[in-house]
Design a protein around this nucleic acid. Structure first.
Length: 853
RNA sequence: GCCGCCGUAGCUCAGUGGUAGAGCGCAUCCUUGGUAAGGCUGAGGUCGGCAGUUCAAUCCUGCCCGGCGGCACCA
């Protein structure tokens, strides 16, 4: 018997699959289709373990569905525009394009080595002119539809990356890539009207029943739809004639109003500042103190009374003061509020500081109107409205409806829906991105290019290597003629956010050769993506943008689906222990030797023998040096062992901890499997298969099938481990014809069941037992449901909830039959000596409990 | 503060309303022509805590403790 040699077998089978074009996606109208997609990688240059896990999961699904008779699309591409290439250009003087394509070449080779069942003929990179030129085409379509527009606005400016960021790319006031504190700048920017779809994007989340709840909740929160009332206060005395618009979600508490507040940036605040130096000073102070969002959130509430007064909408004689308050945001609602401190914590904190009145108008259940008071905590729970004239006695929802109706009747406002979501700013002041296909003409202004002028490609001699936008600096590229007047014009030098690139790539995969951006015929067949797999970090970025673009393109008649991803799975990360020398320097796992001493572990640096501190388990990252290079693992253990390990050791949605012992365990399994197949002896003809092994085989098929369907790869693999132990206990040699016959069926099923996880090993095993053709082309094994149940069940017998013995009964035995067996059992009878049986509870095929006294 | 996930063997994790499992690690032994290896056997768990529902709870419910993640002056 020879040891399994992955270095020889694995490349052999990859070649066989390629020669057979085993993974070519073909539209077959008679067959059900299945589109499996993993979030495409950024070509950073090297494959890491996270990629191995992500793409192995997708590969399990793709191979499984193919074996189950689906026509499968499983493509791969590259999210290839973006800053790292430009940063490499600045740091190392390389050309971003060359750098990117060289990285793609290397990573493609590594991905191919993983043995993924991908249709490589469909591969593209977003930096291919053939891709981004099509993107420019639909960009122009959306521009024409008014879904893309240009506006001067205050934007998030990342001073390190020298570009604008979308709101979604600002985390805790810092750039998501650079970590730099984001500044506010006023710029002319391209934006997409994602807010037009805010309602749909919220409502349609309910249809995504194969998405994790967590992601749906995150998107819902991000879009932040709230329903309420927009209405107008009229000024008492001086003040703008048009009044002051406010937004509230609590119109039911209008009679608890204490003051009216505006944001420091609000026009009314500006007006006050113009004639009141103290107001101006207060506004200035607010601006200074609020550099980051984190600071705004924790800042103490402060305000300034403008001296202006407004009339209460339901009582012209009731006047409310107008304050400027630092906690009011200009870009939400109308930038102005009415404050009801008794039922809003922020308002309460504010009025407690400035001595304004607090009047409760919602009476909590069980409280007495005469004695109920609000202390330091606002009451936001349910109750009955009081102190509120015509709203008295109503519950909160009824009072909201009544207040809105009254305001509408007065003509002072209407019910309104407000979103937290802002339009998507897509301009980036960087060269290594998709050029925006418009020109600026002195005479005609902003002019879209005709489609015949596409693609707008990068110049070949672009000079990177300095900060700022290289397209802007290029001596000739931007100078062109205006398609409208023929006069001189300059090209737009902003490029599109790379999230635009990734917002439609899944649709392009349906037919990457098509002249139009999306081939309707092919997209109608393949879309939506049946199973999308990727990290949770894109919950409100990529996944929201892709949903929006899908809807926008559907409305433009370019797509038939309104949701891109029918199923979403967010997989966990690959983690590893961290190691540090005494001086605090991080050390790579491969330089560390771990020795077990009893139950504790001790780490030393291999080179010097010095002790190393074992630190926390963290996501594999270069900064902590706790990475393990996939290619080194492939070299030692083979690809299959690596795939098996990252899938086997944790549930797919949770993090998996990479350990040497773990991958060695997977490697041992690979060898044990091969050993079992290598020792295979053909069964004598016509022998009746051993019933126990047969049942175990059919149970296994059922369990593995259900595990893959449910994304429980780890438990499916656990069942395979257990089954192998059973086979080892019934070895091929020196055995009965019955066992040999059962083993033949078992091995045939086993080879096909391991194929999604360890595809190379499966081929080798399949060949060894004389399987027909390639295992990738073999149908998934079927199980006989009758064989997955035992014919005879061992039922534990409890007396008063404690286990006192067991009986053997036929499967499905009912109460009467079981009671008969109980009576005939001398052991049980002995246990019941002197007791009166009150009740016998029989749970079919599970257990018997006798209640006795 | 709000929402979600997690807590089972030394470690990493499966699992189940009814006798508690895997891999690694640990111990013993075997093999020494699968040998920078292979195999047998074994020890090890009040299933985070308390209460409830139930004939029966590690599993369901509630509360608490601990860890992780997301959201958070959004009117």
């Amino acid at each position: 018997m020879a040891r399994y040699n992955p270095k020889e077998t694995e490349p052999k089978w990859r070649k066989a699959w390629a020669d057979a074009e085993a993974f070519k996606a073909v539209r077959e109208p008679g067959k059900p289709k299945y589109y499996v997609l993993e979030m495409f990688p950024y070509p950073s240059g090297r494959l890491h373990m996270g990629h191995v896990r992500n793409y192995s999961m997708g590969d399990v699904i793709a191979r499984f569905k193919r074996a189950r008779g689906f026509s499968v699309l499983h493509p791969m591409g590259w999210d290839a525009f973006g800053l790292p290439a430009e940063n490499a250009a600045i740091e190392r003087g390389v050309d971003p394009k060359e750098w990117t394509y060289a990285n793609i070449d290397r990573m493609r080779a590594e991905l191919k080595e993983l043995g993924l069942s991908i249709d490589w003929s469909r591969e593209f990179a977003t930096c291919d002119v053939g891709y981004y030129g099509k993107q420019q085409a639909w960009f122009l379509d959306l521009l024409e539809r008014g879904l893309v527009y240009r506006k001067e606005s205050v934007v998030n400016w990342d001073p390190v990356d020298q570009t604008v960021l979308a709101n979604e790319q600002v985390v805790d006031g810092r750039g998501w890539r650079s970590g730099a504190v984001v500044e506010k700048r006023k710029l002319n920017q391209w934006a997409m009207r994602i807010t037009d779809y805010a309602d749909q994007l919220t409502d349609d989340l309910a249809t995504l029943d194969r998405w994790p709840d967590k992601v749906r909740v995150m998107q819902e929160n991000w879009i932040g739809r709230s329903k309420g009332l927009k209405f107008r206060f009229h000024f008492a005395g001086e003040g703008p004639a048009e009044g002051l618009d406010v937004y509230t979600t609590r119109p039911d508490t209008l009679f608890g109003a204490s003051f009216v507040g505006v944001a420091p940036d609000h026009p009314l605040a500006q007006m006050a500042a113009a004639r009141d130096p103290k107001a101006a000073a207060f506004i200035e102070e607010c601006r200074r103190g609020a550099a980051t969002e984190a600071e705004i959130e924790t800042a103490e509430k402060r305000g300034y009374d403008t001296g202006l007064r407004v009339k209460h909408p339901f009582d012209p004689d009731w006047e409310l003061p107008v304050w400027i308050a630092n906690f009011i945001l200009m870009d939400y609602g109308t930038g102005a509020i009415f404050a009801c401190p008794a039922h809003d914590q922020r308002d309460l904190d504010f009025v407690r500081k400035y001595g304004l009145p607090v009047k409760p108008v919602v009476l909590p259940p069980g409280e007495d109107a005469a004695t109920f008071q609000v202390g330091d905590e606002a009451y936001t729970g349910p109750g009955v409205i009081y102190n509120s004239r015509f709203l008295d006695g109503l519950d909160i929802e009824a009072a909201k409806a009544e207040a809105i109706a009254r305001i509408e009747a007065l003509g002072d406002g209407e019910g309104a829906t407000v979103f937290r979501l802002r339009d998507w700013g897509v301009s980036r002041q960087r060269a290594w991105g998709c050029p925006i296909p418009v020109v600026h003409c002195e005479k005609d202004g902003v002019v879209p290019l005709p489609k015949s002028a596409l693609p707008v490609a990068h110049p070949a001699d672009i000079e990177f290597g300095k900060s700022g936008n290289a397209l802007e600096r290029h001596p000739t590229w931007k100078h062109t003629t205006c398609p409208a007047c023929g006069g001189p014009a300059t090209r737009e030098t902003d490029t599109l956010d790379t999230f635009v690139d990734s917002s439609w790539y899944f649709a392009r995969f349906a037919n990457p050769w098509a002249d139009e951006p999306i081939s309707q015929e092919d997209a109608d067949y393949w879309l939506p993506v049946d199973q999308y797999i990727g990290g949770i970090e894109h919950a409100v970025l990529h996944l929201l943008y892709a949903r929006f673009v899908t809807k926008a393109l559907a409305d433009d008649g370019q797509l038939s689906v309104r949701e891109p991803f029918a199923g979403l799975f967010t997989q966990g990360m690959v983690t590893h222990e961290t190691y540090r020398r005494q001086n605090g320097e991080w050390v790579e796992p491969k330089d560390v030797e771990i020795a077990a001493e009893g139950k504790t572990r001790r780490a030393t640096l291999i080179e010097t023998g010095e002790p190393v501190v074992i630190g926390d388990i963290e996501k594999m990252a270069k900064s902590k040096r706790n990475t393990v290079a996939p290619e080194e693992i492939f070299e030692v253990y083979g690809v299959d062992a690596a795939r098996l390990f990252v899938l086997s050791d944790s549930p797919a949605e949770r993090d998996v901890q990479w350990t040497t012992g773990g991958v060695q365990g997977a490697w041992r399994f690979v060898n044990r499997v091969w050993d079992e197949f290598d020792g295979h002896v053909p069964a004598p003809a016509a022998a009746e298969p051993d019933a126990e092994i047969r049942r175990a085989t059919h149970k296994l098929i059922r369990q593995v099938t259900e595990s893959i369907d449910g994304f429980r790869f780890n438990s499916g693999i656990a069942r395979l481990y257990e089954f192998l132990n059973l086979l080892k206990a019934n070895p091929a040699k020196d055995t009965t014809p019955a066992i040999a016959a059962a083993r033949a069926e078992a091995l045939s099923a086993f080879a096909r069941l391991i194929a999604p996880f360890t595809p190379h090993l499966a081929e080798e095993c399949w060949g060894r037992i004389g399987g027909e053709g390639l295992v990738v082309a073999a149908p998934w094994p079927e199980f006989d449901p009758a064989l997955t149940e035992d014919a005879v069940k061992v039922l534990p017998v409890q007396v008063n909830g404690k286990r006192r013995g067991e009986i053997t009964a036929p499967a499905g035995a009912e109460q009467a039959a079981v009671e008969a067996i109980l009576k005939a059992d001398p052991d049980i009878s002995a246990k019941l000596e002197g007791l009166t049986i009150r009740k016998i509870i029989v749970v079919k095929d599970r257990i018997v409990n006798i209640v006795a006294a």
